[in-house]
């Protein structure tokens, strides 16, 4: 929507533009710059062309990390989205239960990433962790430092614990906006619980779910801190996701060129997937709203 023409407005947004330039645009350009060059420390650079990209795209290490990342993201989406919807549906719509539930739900979101990692790292330890000790005393051989399956399970459960709340809160916001008349009409029409969900609740949650899926995908695809704190990418490379791999390459090995190339590819993959999700979800079940202004 157009607003009053006012040149002062530019001054108001200038700080943000500067900030964005320094925090996003300039670093990104630097990365692009590095990705096409080779460096040997002490500021010597040689043009490398697309060599790094060729190397990266044919590297098994990259393929593995990418594969792990995709499996991880789709697994947590497959758990968190239905679980989040389910919890949101169970939450009370009015009364004293509402604030209690909302606060409970918000709690995990308030914990910083590295603290979440530390909590689970300790929680899962075989010697002093409640979870690790309990599982082993039940006869389940659980040790995330040695067993890749256990490590994966820990990282996934941790993410679900941390982030399902976000999906719950988003869905809940969608649910409470549904007028009571819809439920009444559905009862009159003899709709089953499933039909109410499918034709009333789900369509109303559609737009917030889209945001939920996008956020969770992007976040989980870029996940670093929590698995790094818990497993450090191990055992072996079993929980080495792209971001962990990238940091190893850039900081650990100081391979700036390949790391920059990988960053770019990583960035483009996230962009691509986000766009695909957005397009698919936007086209599922809804026609574009031609009749703006109605309702």
């Amino acid at each position: 929507m157009e607003k009053t023409v006012n040149n002062k407005a530019w001054f108001m947004v200038l700080p943000v533009l500067v900030l964005v330039a320094f925090t996003a645009v300039i670093p990104l350009m630097t990365v692009v710059n590095y990705a096409f060059q080779d460096s040997f420390g002490n500021n010597q650079f040689f043009w490398a062309g697309i060599e790094w990209f060729q190397e990266l795209l044919s590297s098994e290490r990259f393929h593995d990390a990418l594969g792990r990342n995709l499996i991880f993201s789709f697994t947590i989406l497959a758990i968190e989205i239905p679980l989040g919807i389910g919890i949101a549906l169970c939450m009370p719509k009015k009364g004293w239960g509402v604030p209690v539930c909302l606060v409970l739900m918000a709690l995990p979101l308030l914990v910083p990433w590295n603290v979440v990692g530390t909590i689970w790292q300790v929680f899962g330890r075989v010697d002093i962790g409640l979870l690790g000790y309990f599982l082993n005393s039940l006869g389940i051989n659980y040790n995330y430092t040695q067993d890749p399956v256990a490590a994966w399970a820990t990282v996934i459960v941790m993410d679900v614990w941390h982030w399902t709340s976000l999906v719950v809160l988003l869905c809940y916001a969608g649910l409470v906006s549904i007028p009571e008349a819809y439920y009444q009409a559905a009862r009159i029409d003899g709709a089953s619980r499933w039909a109410v969900f499918r034709y009333i609740q789900l369509p109303k949650m559609h737009s917030v779910l889209l945001i939920g899926v996008l956020l969770r995908f992007m976040d989980s695809f870029m996940i670093y801190t929590e698995p790094f704190v818990v497993t450090g990418g191990g055992p072996g490379n079993s929980t080495t996701f792209l971001s962990i791999d990238l940091v190893k390459m850039a900081i650990g090995q100081f391979d700036l060129g390949p790391a920059a190339a990988m960053s770019l590819v990583y960035f483009l993959i996230i962009l691509l997937f986000s766009w695909v999700f957005y397009t698919i979800m936007n086209n599922v079940g809804t026609e574009k709203k031609h009749y703006a202004g109605e309702e």
Binding site: P179, A181, Y182, Q184, A185, R187, I188, G190, Y199, I200, P203, G285, T286
Partner: peptide, 21 residues
């Protein structure tokens, strides 16, 4: 009896339709 069992129909103040159908 419940609403469903009474076999009545109702038209509300604001139109209630199943948007996606």
């Amino acid at each position: 009896l419940s609403t469903e069992a009474r076999n009545i129909a109702q038209v509300f103040q604001f139109p209630v339709v199943y948007d996606t159908m």
